[in-house]
Amino acid sequence: MPAIECGKGHLYDPTLYAACPYCNSGMQTVNFTSPAGVPVGAAGRTAPVGAPAPGASAPGAPAMPIGEAGRTMPLEGSVPQPVNPQQPGVPVQSGMPSYAAPGTSVTADGKTMPPKGYEAPKPSAKVDEHNPTVGVMRKELQLDRDPVVGFLVCVRGKPRGNAFELRGQVTTVGRSSRMHIRLTDDMTVSEEDHAHIIYDDRGQIFYITPLKNRNIVYVNDRAVLAPTPIVPYDMIDLGQTRLCFIPLCGERFSWTNEAV
């Protein structure tokens, strides 16, 4: 059977469909609530690969009796019984196969539900995008955003050759778009807060803090398990990405000492 892929991972037979029948399949309508006992015909099916070919039965299926119209019929006795163990109170209408096996979604209208009492996270619990916490350094220096205090230069991994800016006191590193430094291509880096790079502008010391990660953070090939000071040219391994630490602030430069 000729099958092609539509580019979104759907397989279909191009001799039967001009375009992928599965993309935007929400547009299709199927009359499924047909009168009692009348099975919906093959024409009402939502375009499976095995489209209704005339006389298409199940070859090599001795146990499957073939119906008069050439349709594959269900095995005798293999049709589940029209009882609903989940909802004993619901009467089974005669002639109407109202059937649901255990484990099927049969809440009010059979829809898949979240756990009882599950509530969507309340908006108030989220960070207010319009009034985020203001960095101390930015506030003191009266800047639009926190000033650059150093850099992480990627020496191994996909962003090799690029530098990431360390800004303000705390720089978050992870894979998600909410992080300051986004290592989006390294699947071994945690989504959020793999590590924080912290700059103490009073003591002029940089620290690295390993956080919610599956993989150990290494500095110069030594495992870092707690907040640790880092010095220039330290090699930081986050997942499979290696970053070289280059500070701007320190003994020789500080934003607070610079006159405007």
Partner: peptide
Amino acid sequence: EDLASPSQD
């Protein structure tokens, strides 16, 4: 299709 349950997911 043959079962044609009115709550078919």
